[in-house]
Amino acid sequence: MANHLDLEEQEQLEQLKAFWGQYGNAITWGLVLIFVSFASWNAFQYWQRNQAAQASALYDEVERSVGTGDISKMQRAFDEMKNRYPSTIYAQQAALLLAKAAVQSNKVDEAKVALGWASEQGKDSALATIARLRLSTVLLESKELDEAVKILQSDPADPEYLAVVQDRRGDVLVAKGDKTAAIENYKKAYAGSAAKPDLQRLVRIKLNALGVDMEQSAVAPSTTGN
Rank of each mutant, 00 (worst) to 15 (best):
A94P: 13
L58W: 00
L135D: 02
I151P: 09
K143F: 03
K176N: 06
S119I: 08
A52I: 08
Q12F: 03
Y46S: 13
L140C: 01
E8K: 15
I151T: 14
G225W: 06
K73G: 04
R201L: 06
G170Y: 14
E144W: 06
N50L: 03
A43Y: 07
D146T: 03
L98Y: 05
E160Y: 08
L173N: 11
A126G: 00
E141Y: 03
I27F: 15
R84T: 10
V66C: 01
L127F: 11
D124C: 12
M1W: 02
Q104F: 07
V172N: 06
I34P: 00
E61C: 04
V108W: 01
Q93E: 10
F44L: 15
A43P: 00
A157T: 02
Q92H: 08
A194D: 09
G116M: 02
S37V: 13
A101E: 05
G170R: 15
D124H: 07
D171G: 12
Q93M: 14
A91E: 07
L115R: 02
A77F: 10
D60T: 12
A148C: 08
L145C: 06
I205R: 05
D79L: 08
K123F: 01
A157N: 08
Q93V: 10
A218F: 04
D79T: 08
A163N: 05
P159H: 00
R132T: 06
S65W: 08
A128G: 09
A194M: 06
D158A: 10
R132E: 12
D109G: 02
G116N: 04
V66P: 05
V103N: 04
A182E: 14
P197L: 11
Q166L: 14
S72A: 15
N50P: 00
S87V: 04
D198F: 07
F44C: 12
E8C: 09
K196W: 01
V62P: 13
D109I: 04
K100V: 09
I205M: 11
L7K: 12
A18E: 15
Q22I: 09
V164G: 07
A39F: 11
A194C: 03
R132N: 14
R134W: 14
M81Y: 09
P156N: 11
Y59I: 01
Y85A: 00
P221C: 08
K112C: 02
L202D: 10
H4G: 02
L145P: 13
E141Q: 13
A95C: 10
K82L: 13
Y90A: 10
S40K: 14
A157G: 06
Q153N: 13
E144D: 13
L152I: 13
